[in-house]
Structure formats: C-alpha cells, structure tokens
Design a protein around this nucleic acid. Structure first.
Length: 421
DNA sequence: GTAGGGTTAG
C-alpha cells in the first residue's frame, strides 16, 4: 500500500511527499523495505539529487539494517554516471562487489552506456578489467569480455548503446557490422536500435541506406499503418506511452535526416505524412522542419509553420525562436527580427551564442537601428560572458571591444547575478 | 514490485 503510493509519487517526481510518506509508514510501524528505499533512491538519482540519494542509502543500511541489492547499487551508479561523477561510480561498483553483490547485465549496461557517451573512463577501467587501450569503443568492448567472464551476456540494450557509440563517433561501418551482429546472435533489434541506426546513417549522408532501414522497420511492424492507426491511437491515450511515442520520434529523425541531406522535398512529404496519419508533430518535429525550411532559404514557409505552432497546442519554445531567428538572419530577412526578439523578451527566452553572434554581425553591418541593441541586451543571458562558458570563445572572436563599439555599451560590465543583462 | 539504450537548434 505505502510502497505503491511511494512508487506513484516518485513517478511524478514528487520526492518530498514520497519521503514524508516513507517517514509516516515507519512511524506507523509499517517497516519500509528494500523496494521502498530503491524507489526513493532511484527517483532522487533521476532528479540529480544524488547526495540526498546517498543520505537515504546510509539511512537504509546503517539505521534500518536493510541490505542494499543490485538495484540499489545500479541506481546509484547510474546517478553518478549521469552526473559525470566518474571517480565515484567505480568506487560504488567496488563497494557492491565487496558487499558480495554481483552486478548484472543492467549494471553493465549502465556503465557501457556511460563509456560510450563520455571519454572519462580512466577510473572506471580499473574496476571493470579493461585491458585494451585502443580508444573509447574498444574500452566498451572489453567490458563485454568482463561480462562474459562473469557469465553475463550482452542483450539488445547493451548492443544498442554500443551502436549509439559507434554512430556518434561516425564509425558507420562498425555500426553496420554491429547491427548485423545483433541478429546473428539471435537478438531482435527494436525501435530504439533502428532509430539509432537511422540517425547514424543520416549523419554520414547515407540516405539510401537509411531509407532501406526505414522500410525494414515498416515491414517489421514497428510503425503503425493506416488501418491500425485508430486502434493504436486509442491505445496510446490509454497507456500514455508505447510504440506510438516512438513513431513521431522516427519521423522526426527522418525529417531531420532528409533535410540535412538536402532532400527537403522528402522532408516536407514526411511532415505531411505525419499529419495525414493523425499523428501529432511535437516540438522537436516542428523545430526540425522549421530548421530544414530555413536551411533552404524558405523563410516564408518557416514563418508559416511557426505561426501554425502558435495556434496549436504545441507552442514554440526557445529553440524554435532561435532557429527561426537564425533562419531570418542567415537569409538576410530582417523585417520580423525585432518582433521575435520582443516576444522572446516577454516570454523570458534568451539568445544562445550562435544566434547572438549572427545578430551582432547584422548590427555591425548596419541592418538595424539602435533600438535593437537594448533588445539584444535584454535577451542575452549573462553566463554568455562568463570565463568558464564554452561560448565565451565565440564571443572572443570579436571581443568585448567590439561589443562596446558596435552596441555602444560603453559602460558595459559583467553583471554579478544570474539575470539577463 | 523497484534499476539500463535512441529523438531537434549550432
């Protein structure tokens, strides 16, 4: 009863109430168990509140005498990895081993995924017996050896993470090999596997192969066909997740991929297809499409789509504003820039470094009157000028002197607080 | 019963 409520609260990220419920159940003599703590610890980790998660881990072990299990440790390891706390993740793995708890395939998958996404695995290597030093991918593979040693075999998730690693490093040949390897091992690629592969193929411009993969997905029934769509939609509303969620993601990948390959006609047709099938484009779909239209200079069409978003239940977000703004600036269409900036200011949206950079260029070229400076200043977050920020370099190109000269900010100084300038 | 993989600006 309590556990079910705690699980529900954690699912909606209401940690505070979940924790008070934990205390309440304890006071009422209903002892929390490993499951209760696992649920709360994982939820805290997912909210990046790892120190709080450790507090409950200690409470569980030292005060309540409950032994943590593989799920407790895996959740904590995942939390540490996702926060980039690399020194602590392997310590946790070691602690787990010392505690006599064996990691399982899911524990390894957490580590493999982290390896594939980050380069900083030096400390982790010591604990997962990594012998090879031939770059990040082989590090991940050597974890496979370690897994096999323990009698744990990679599953489709393991391979999909590695596939993602290969695709992100543009090693498409290895990715393709791995993809075929999955089937050879008797494992079934799923929607995520296909999506990863599709994304990778587009990234290296292999649209034909991407198309083949898409057709294969259709053939395998990953996507809804026209006859099943109604049924699937009602199911979607009932469950709130499932394959249909993936469908719009697949289309978004396809639209983005096609337009980046210079095939805007295909992208447009796909976008139309989404609507025809009764699927709803989400923010990502719209942003990808607007970006694609701008890339080809079709700023008018991009604006039209933007306006459509404003009327829909999927209003533009700050990314949409930035994409459209960049589209206008790159195509030297300045008429709507001011109104867009004003609206961004109203909505509390801010500019990013690349958009700001384009704006400053336009100001320098004399494309705007002086009132624009105030607007730009309003929508520029102060962190953009901070030393540690990666975007600082892009600003250094023209330097503070340039900002002074072009924008006339003669008294400009770095603000101390977090607010916009 | 509770833990793991893919999705957009640049």
């Amino acid at each position: 009863m309590y556990n079910t409520m705690i699980k529900g609260l954690c699912k909606i990220s209401n940690n505070v109430i979940a924790i008070s419920l934990l205390k309440l159940m304890d006071e009422r003599g209903c002892k929390p168990d490993c499951f209760t703590y696992n649920t709360i610890i994982d939820s805290l980790c997912k909210d990046k509140l790892i120190d709080d998660a450790f507090k409950f881990f200690k409470e569980m072990v030292f005060q309540k005498g409950i032994s943590p299990d593989v799920i407790t440790y895996s959740s904590l390891i995942d939390g540490l990895c996702k926060l980039g706390r690399w020194d602590e993740a392997p310590k946790m793995l070691q602690e787990m081993l010392d505690d006599g708890i064996s990691p399982n395939v899911q524990t390894f998958n957490i580590l493999i995924d982290a390896c594939c996404k980050e380069g900083k695995v030096k400390e982790a290597e010591d604990f997962i017996n990594i012998m090879l030093k031939r770059g990040e991918m082989s590090k991940a593979i050597s974890i496979f050896d370690s897994m096999a040693f323990r009698g744990i075999f990679p599953n489709v998730v393991t391979y999909s993470s590695l596939l993602n690693g290969y695709c992100k490093s543009l090693n498409i040949e290895e990715a393709m090999n791995l993809f075929h390897e999955i089937t050879k091992k008797g494992l079934k690629p799923n929607v995520v596997t296909y999506n990863t592969m599709l994304q990778g193929l587009f990234r290296v411009g292999r649209c034909g192969d991407a198309r083949k993969h898409f057709d294969e997905m259709l053939a395998k029934g990953f996507l809804c066909n026209n006859h099943k769509i109604e049924e699937a939609l009602s199911l979607f509303h009932l469950t709130g997740d499932g394959k249909l969620n993936s469908d719009i993601a697949v289309y978004t990948i396809l639209i983005d991929g096609a337009s980046k390959c210079g095939k805007l006609d295909i992208a447009t047709a796909l976008f139309q297809d989404v609507t025809n099938k009764g699927l709803h484009p989400d923010l990502k779909t719209y942003n990808v499409m607007i970006s694609g239209l701008c890339r080809e200079g079709l700023v008018g069409d991009a604006k039209e789509l933007f306006l459509k978003m404003e009327e829909s239940d999927c209003p533009p977000n700050n990314v949409t504003y930035r994409v459209l703004l960049q589209g206008y600036l790159k195509n030297k269409r300045y008429d709507d820039v001011q109104i867009l900036l004003e609206r961004m200011d109203e909505l509390g949206y801010s500019l990013d470094a690349s958009t700001l950079s384009l704006l400053i260029d336009a100001v320098a070229a004399g494309s705007f009157d002086t009132t624009m400076s105030t607007l730009i200043a309003h929508t520029t977050p102060h962190w953009i000028f901070s030393e540690s920020s990666e975007v600082h370099n892009s600003l250094q190109d023209f330097g503070y002197r340039f900002v002074h000269k072009v924008l006339g900010w003669s008294n400009f100084s770095i603000p101390a607080d977090d607010t916009a300038i």
